[in-house]
Every structure is written in C-alpha cells, then in structure tokens.
C-alpha cells in the first residue's frame, strides 16, 4: 500500500494524504503554523490512488 503525504512548505510538517482527503482544506496542523493545506495540493496520481482505495484508509 502506498503511503502518500504532503509536506507543508511553511513549517515542514508532514500530513498524511488520507487526512487531507478527509478534510479537503485544513489549517496546517504544525506547531504555530498558519499555512492552509488542501487535498488539491497533492499530485493528481496521488489523489486518485487515495480515492481508488478507500478501504485502505478505514479502520
């Protein structure tokens, strides 16, 4: 299973792609970071992988 992440360009916090898919647009969860992160920031192929495998990201 591929693990897809996005690194905040502002603070280097790494956010999992599945969390971004859940939130779609979110404040960076980094320490005192004001950046906004979006699922759309991921490359198209990564987004599609997450959307194609919802069973991988459900408990």
């Amino acid at each position: 299973m591929r693990i897809i992440t996005l690194t905040c360009p502002n603070c280097d916090t790494v956010v999992s792609g599945n969390l971004l898919e859940e939130e779609r647009v979110m404040h960076c969860p980094g320490y005192r970071c004001s950046a906004t992160l979006s699922f759309e920031n991921l490359p198209e192929t990564d987004r599609q992988y997450i959307l194609d495998h919802p069973d991988y990201f459900e408990l």
């Binding site: 992440t5 280097d12 969390l19 980094g30 408990l59």
Partner: peptide, 11 residues
C-alpha cells in the same frame, strides 16, 4: 529539533 508528522486515523 522536532518536525511533526500528522498521521490522522491510527492506521
């Protein structure tokens, strides 16, 4: 030096 990595759900 700490970098945060946010996993979300405990997968």
């Amino acid at each position: 030096e700490i970098t945060y990595i946010v996993q979300g759900k405990p997968l």
